[in-house]
Design a protein around this nucleic acid. Structure first.
Length: 244
DNA sequence: TGCCATGTTAAACT
DNA sequence: GAGTTTAACATGGC
């Protein structure tokens, strides 16, 4: 389910509940849910892969992790697996298999919202600055770094690196300035392509290297390898992606 | 059936 | 105590 663009789609789905009062809560989330009852959902904010349901004094932070899911109005899974449900007059939202936490307003103000790859206020210059501070970082780790490219996940990482012809283990400091800029602009571009394809249910169809075996450019076999700090799988072409 | 994966955090190490 | 590595969590698809 969850890379940044998917989270944005979730926000769209949830949006109809903003301005409404919580009438009831349920789920096995391990915090006291009662204070939410009677509170008005003021706003829904997303930051990368995180979603914040904003109430007057507190916010609920939701992270779908690897397998999280949600549904609207109709509960599709058994009670026992329900992490959190918020009921409203007109329906309800349900979250499963996810991390749910209460956070205070200071938590929200501490977030660097300009680091969100999907945001209107996304700041590529800022990303560039952050990258230049860490020349020893591998390109694959840079893209997965949620403080720099909040919202980018492993799929986006692989596809972006292929698009710009950079081998995942290339060091940021070795990239020519032009490539570094491409890395930043394509991270955002691809995320919006991802969003569009996801909406049309054709996301997988557009993968060029992720989970693939053959390079779409030269027809050679792709390399599949765990790379970087997170040891996440990378798919790349040794011919068409240069190691800097 | 068993393995693996769109992710993060906390515990357990050195 | 710091920095680093491993484990835990949990579900669905192949």
């Amino acid at each position: 389910m969850p890379e940044g663009p998917s989270i944005l789609l979730m926000k769209e789905d949830l949006r109809k509940f903003t301005g409404q009062k919580v009438t009831d809560t349920a789920g096995n989330a391990k915090f006291d849910k009662e204070p939410l009852e009677g509170k008005t959902l003021l706003e829904i904010k997303t930051f990368g892969k995180q979603t914040y349901l904003v109430f007057d004094e507190m916010s609920v932070r939701i992270h779908l992790l690897m397998f999280g899911s949600y549904s609207i109005d109709e509960q599709t899974k058994p009670d026992s697996s329900l992490r959190l449900a918020l009921h409203f007059k007109t329906g309800a939202m349900y979250f499963y298999t996810c991390s749910v936490k209460m956070v205070d307003h200071e938590f929200l103000t501490a977030i660097d919202w300009e680091a969100d790859i999907m945001s209107d206020i996304w700041d590529p210059k800022k990303a560039e600055k952050k990258l230049k501070l860490k020349p020893q970082m591998m390109a694959c780790d840079a893209l997965m770094n949620q403080d720099i490219f909040s919202g980018v996940g492993n799929i986006i990482k692989n596809e972006v690196l292929f698009r710009i012809g950079v081998q995942p283990e290339s060091l940021i400091g070795n990239l020519p300035p032009k490539k570094l800029k491409e890395l930043i602009t394509e991270a955002r571009n691809y995320s919006f392509d991802f969003l569009k394809w996801k909406k049309e249910f054709v996301l997988k169809k557009h993968w060029l290297v992720h989970t693939k075996a053959i390079c779409p450019i030269c027809g050679e076999k792709l390399v599949k390898k765990q790379t970087g700090i997170g040891k996440r799988r990378s798919f790349y072409c040794e011919k068409d992606q240069k190691l800097y």
